[in-house]
Design a protein around this nucleic acid. Structure first.
Lengths: 132, 132
DNA sequence: CTTGACCTTGTAGTTACTACAAGGTGCATA
DNA sequence: TATGCACCTTGTAGTAACTACAAGGTCAAG
């Protein structure tokens, strides 16, 4: 698969894929005779993961850690455990914040259905959730 | 309250608060005689909201929309409804992705407790979730 | 009446892309 | 055969959202 098709499939632009390669976040793929990058399906999953994790507000440093967790199958259990627990904590805080936001948006939509605009408490919805 | 205290309370750095003021995301507060910015508690909630929303991967454009939803109490129900529904969709997609990630991290931690490292399926966990 | 912690503005640097320029590749079609 | 056309290559420069730093003003405490 060439870079353009991989970009279309994953929603990560060609330029960004090349940028990730320069940064060492994705491996440099083999080249065709014409010096074109030639990707397999593994890169597709990896890029989908990166794009979704970025959308969820994870930094590239954090994503690198998660990818390392995935890549280094043969590392110490203690190391995996500590890192996974730390990531799990971050994930759970994000879920809690998003659920508060979901509740408030749902409340506003319901109020609109009654034609009773009411007031918006979106700011307060997120204000009470845990620290990032 | 001066900018430094507001920064400590909200976790948004003074420089970033001034940056948000330049960008029109937070209002310019009144000044003291010494020309220092003088904030009230409303700015605290607003900045907490912005920080958490950024942490959840919302762009500043999206956050502006959410803040506008909060600021313009007197706008059309149809407009609020459409915007709130669109934001709700994004929030629910993010929750679904994070729950998949949570499940996989939990599975890895459980495997570590058994001293059976197993393999990491973090990438696959996010690969199957909805499009951002 | 100075020291230190705060504030001011302005400018420059960082992260994570994103766009564009200048040119090479390869397949279809005249 | 040639000539578009869509694709690829590298490199450089621009953007969004901060972040850091410099040069200087304010003010309460010792």
């Amino acid at each position: 698969m060439r870079i353009g098709q991989l970009a279309r499939i994953t929603g990560v632009k060609s330029e960004t894929i090349r940028f990730y390669e320069r940064e060492g976040i994705v491996a440099a793929p083999p080249r065709t005779r014409a010096n074109y990058r030639d990707y397999g399906p593994a890169e597709e999953a990896r890029l989908n993961f990166i794009r979704r994790a970025r959308d969820l507000g994870f930094s590239m440093a954090r994503i690198r850690e998660l990818l390392d967790l995935s890549d280094d199958a043969d590392r110490s259990c203690a190391g995996i455990d500590a890192l996974a627990r730390s990531h799990l904590g971050e994930v759970e805080r994000k879920i809690a914040s998003l659920e508060a936001l979901r509740t408030e948006l749902g409340r506003m939509i319901a109020a609109c259905e009654q034609d009773t605009v009411g007031d918006c408490r979106i700011i307060d919805a997120l204000a009470g959730t845990a620290e990032p």
